[in-house]
Design a protein around this nucleic acid. Structure first.
Length: 443
RNA sequence: GCCCUGGUAGUAUAGCCCGGUCUAGUAUAGGCGGCUGUCGCCCGCCCGACCCGGGUUCAAAUCCCGGCCAGGGCGCCA
């Protein structure tokens, strides 16, 4: 038997199983587990350690009269978050969690954790989000967080599967840019050698240009907004899921969006039932098509409920909250007044004061926005001027419109807001590993 | 940019309104001891805190002012 706690025989700590693979039918088998101590319950003559690895947990049981004296000593020294390798024998045991436990033959301490830890990694004494984010690496060991990020992973996987199957190619556009993409403010300036540059707030212009080459493109990437918002649904850095499709209209890409969301909800239900259970959350698979409500209908509905909005005004947050109660789950808002939408959104041919832009709502939260784009250079320049943007600063974008720009449409979904919907968490920072907001820049 | 709320041990909280009874209570983590079936184990002992500065007062965790930090909301947005 190896001398416990030593490192001779450098591969002795190599894992044979993950914790979740330890099942009653392995009774009697010797296994090596590696991971971290999550909890210690010492009853004197018998000690219980909960070992965590990336898959889950298993109980390590140390009965005094069944193991050697030196092992008792090591077990007594173990504390939360110590990194260990455990060689032991699986035992079927009704009284143990999942009906199985491991009786150790040797335990190697690979690294100890400094006590006391800044947060309770078992989650029994809850900590505020600010404290948890300061100790984010420890916080992420908690099973709720493991569940959130597994769902995030599964959602991204499902999204990529969906796009691939539907003929979209994944692109990456620059995040360091020379000028504002959608005009105006809210860009983070960066020192780019001797020049000033900015962090991209959206891949909008690049993805539009690329439809000439690839027709159907999507990008899943970071976007940056220097907005001083401080709410549970805003970040300064977030992941945007963007698509752009040639020879398509707003209606075409709305169908892509609803099909995608339905697919993602299905996949999460199928592949993440354990995670959803941990989060005590249910994902309802939406039926399609989603409701399409016009801006006029929304304004009228709100008026009937006493929320007055004159035509052409943007919808304030309080009004969205009211709308969310009226239309639980997904719905589109279409036929927006043109002047409320960005310059590249196409005005309707028959009624130019109305645009072909849309928003996709989930309850009261905007999850996506998009529309048919302008593909005629003259109209695009006209719209830029109407929004007080200087066409000169968009010359590289505009020149592409001389190269046979097709009619096209697209949208952008905020990944984090989608994950909020899939996990049921109330604060967007919960679904980002290291969130950035107006005040938080570390860790 | 604006508005609201809050800052008490590693963590989460009580106390604050109505100043003295606070050598600041509790839980959990941590330390020591005990305990052979725990799964929020249990029991005993111990360690550990009033954000900073100024003011009012005989007396400030408590009231007032300023600062810093945090949470939430509005506007804007995904």
């Amino acid at each position: 038997m190896m001398k416990a706690g030593s490192f001779h025989g450098s591969l002795n700590w190599k894992r044979t199983h993950y914790t979740t693979e330890i099942a009653p039918d392995l009774d009697g088998k010797e296994v090596v587990l590696t991971g971290w101590i999550k909890e210690v319950r010492d009853l004197g003559g018998i000690k219980f350690l909960i070992l965590r690895d990336k898959e889950g947990t298993v109980q390590i049981t140390i009965p005094r009269d069944e193991v050697e004296e030196h092992l008792i000593k090591i077990a007594e020294s173990l504390q939360r978050q110590d990194c260990v390798s455990v060689r032991g024998v699986v035992r079927r045991m009704d009284k143990a969690p999942r009906g199985v436990e491991v009786i150790p033959r040797s335990i190697m301490l690979l690294n100890s954790a400094k006590q006391p830890l800044p947060i309770d990694i078992t989650g029994k004494t809850p900590a505020d989000i600010d404290v948890r984010l300061d100790a984010r690496i420890l916080d992420l060991t908690r099973e709720e967080n493991q569940a959130i990020f597994r769902i995030r992973h599964a959602a991204l996987e499902a999204i990529r599967e969906f796009f691939s199957k539907n003929g979209f190619i994944e692109i990456h556009t620059p995040k360091i840019i020379a000028t504002a993409t959608e005009g105006g403010a809210n860009l983070f300036p960066v020192a780019y050698f001797e020049r000033e540059a900015f962090l991209a707030q959206s891949p909008q212009l690049y993805k539009e240009q690329l439809v000439i080459d690839f027709e159907k493109v999507y990008e899943i990437g970071p976007t940056f907004r220097a907005e001083k918002s401080h709410t549970r649904r805003h970040l300064t850095e977030f992941i945007s899921i963007d698509i752009e499709e040639a020879f398509a209209t707003a209606e075409d890409v709305m169908e892509v969006a609803e099909n995608l969301l339905q697919h993602v909800c299905k996949v999460i239900n199928e592949r993440c039932s354990r995670e959803l259970e941990i989060l005590k959350h249910k994902v309802e698979v939406p039926s399609i098509p989603f409701k399409r409500l016009t801006y006029d209908e929304i304004v009228n509905e709100l008026r009937d409920l006493g929320v007055k909005i004159s035509w052409g005004e943007d919808i304030p947050t309080v009004a969205y909250r009211t709308l969310g109660r009226l239309h639980p789950y997904f719905y589109f808002i279409i036929d927006w007044p043109t002047h409320l939408k960005p310059f590249y959104i196409k005005p309707r041919d028959d009624k130019p004061e109305i645009s072909e832009g849309f928003d996709l709502m989930w309850h009261w939260i905007e999850i996506a926005s998009g529309g048919t784009r302008i593909h005629k250079k003259e109209l695009l320049i006209k719209r830029m001027k109407e929004q007080n943007l200087n066409p000169e600063s968009f010359k590289y974008h505009l020149q592409v419109f001389d190269y046979g720009m097709p009619p096209h449409a697209g949208w952008a979904i905020g990944l984090e807001r989608l994950i909020m919907m899939l996990t049921g968490v109330k604060n967007i920072r919960e679904v980002v590993l290291f969130p950035r907001d107006r005040f938080r820049l570390v860790p």
